[in-house]
Amino acid sequence: MLKRKGRWLAMTLAAALLMAVPVCASAAVEEDGAPGRRMAIQATKAKPIVRTITADHSKFKELQFDPEQEKTMRPEEVTQTCLKCHNQAALQFHQTIHWTWRDFDENGKPTDLGKGGLSVNNF
């Protein structure tokens, strides 16, 4: 009888252990298995420089400044040079919060929010 008892105890324990195996296996972390991680790596694989730049700005004559003249130039003068080709940039920039310091409503009109508006903070 003792022998039988022992066998059943062993079987019961074995069954309980078998059930615990998948628990332990699923807890182990598998490297790089997350689909989100794989997707993100895929999405950002190409270096930005490879993708879009088709002009080497250092070759433009307009941007070759006289080293002596450069010493006294104001930053705005360089910007003026950019705007000769990038002829929409200034108009676009004037519409952004970096220029207006005001938030916009749905129609693009400036609101009271913003550093240039009536916002308050505590710092």
């Binding site: 079987m11 019961t12 324990l13 309980a16």
Partner: peptide, 9 residues
């Protein structure tokens, strides 16, 4: 068998 497995579970 089911009694003891069930008890452990």
């Amino acid at each position: 068998f089911w009694h003891w497995v069930q008890s452990v579970l």
